[in-house]
Design a protein around this nucleic acid. Structure first.
Lengths: 206, 206
DNA sequence: GTCTATATGCGGATAGAC
DNA sequence: GTCTATCCGCATATAGAC
């Protein structure tokens, strides 16, 4: 593994664990048994490290946007969300520290905005498709609101979990997170699709 | 105005504007035309300032929990949420910087957890009351999920707005935020209550 | 590519005079 | 109560040898 990639990997791990603001470049280097000078040989500053990680996050999210068109049933959506949450968990510092990142490195804000817009668009497409296939019934306006709420839950779920550590598992439970997103659809589902939600409820709400 | 209160007021303003992590005690003092030493005479450290502001925030939120029992109609709820969002906006650094606050000052975490639990309890009571009065129809389980989603939106709305600055006004629009919470109820409303939501939709979704 | 050493600046916090 | 002066430690980032 190239030094450059080791730096990125370690940075990601530390950012996720301790928060990007609290992780220093010295710490990253030290944990790799490397000198700070060496780290700065590979990246001109901390922002550049964040920038590369953000780009990678963007890349792993792209498949979700593409998968949107192959969501035909409710369990397709649950699976897609499950994978999405796993990716988000792998880069969880991004949404958790979004405010810090955008303040400290304004150049990164546009990318975060674009990513959010892309997710909104993907959710819109998914809900329209599910409506057309008779899995759910929702007006165009309701689809718009549902998409917004969905993306809100997707991006904020991990942060919110830290405010209610008892109720929602703080641990990485992407399945449960995906289930909670699906509950937003509850009242819009046609009868055929409802059993699947009940099944998930038994599984996650015990 | 006592020096102590001026410090708290200025701290609040700066925390809200620039984020608690980015605001230094020196800055707070300087903006008040005061020496750092003087600030530290009144507060032993930065944590103590945050602590007092958090307590005040907790105090201004208490009325909402109490008002929960006098929510009988949908517009009662909208008004209560409107006021709630105005208070949250006045102390917006709290939810926005919650992660930093809990990391940097773990002693503050329990209070934030309690506050969130209180909001969950309040929303549960409200939705149960509205169900009993025939404003909406929802099972106990649905009430539980609705309460959770509601509190998630309440606490994360401002943070989320910064991810989609174009769509949702970044400005302080408590009415709109309150409306968006109400849309969560859309599918659960009885026919009598629906016109009010439609009215709000025209007002805020134009 | 990697190291050592260090410049530079800032943030939190304290001591002690007034 | 308020100020001046300052200590301490740390974070980003660079210079230059190996």
């Amino acid at each position: 593994m190239k030094t450059r990639d080791r730096i990125l990997a370690q940075s990601l791990a530390l950012f996720n664990e301790d928060g990007a603001p609290a992780v220093t470049t010295n710490r990253i280097a030290a944990d790799l048994g490397m000198s700070p000078g060496n780290l700065y040989y590979h990246f001109k500053n901390k922002q550049q490290i964040v920038e590369h990680l953000l780009r990678r996050f963007d890349d792993v999210l792209a498949p979700f946007a593409n998968a949107a068109d192959s969501v035909h049933e409710l369990d397709d959506l649950w699976l897609a969300l499950h994978l999405l949450f796993e990716n988000i968990h792998a880069y969880r510092f991004v949404y958790r520290d979004a405010d810090y990142l955008m303040r400290e490195y304004p150049a990164l804000a546009p990318r975060l905005h674009r990513m959010t817009q892309a997710q909104l668009a993907a959710m819109r497409r998914i809900y329209l498709a599910l409506s057309q296939r008779g899995v759910m019934r929702a007006s165009e306006q309701e689809v718009e609101l549902l998409a917004l709420h969905t993306v809100l839950v997707i991006t904020c779920w991990l942060s919110f979990s830290r405010l209610v550590p008892e109720a929602l598992g703080t641990q990485n439970d992407s399945g449960r997170a995906a289930y909670h997103v699906l509950t937003l659809l509850g009242p819009y589902l046609e009868d055929d699709a409802r059993p699947y939600l009940v099944y998930l409820t038994h599984k996650y709400l015990k």
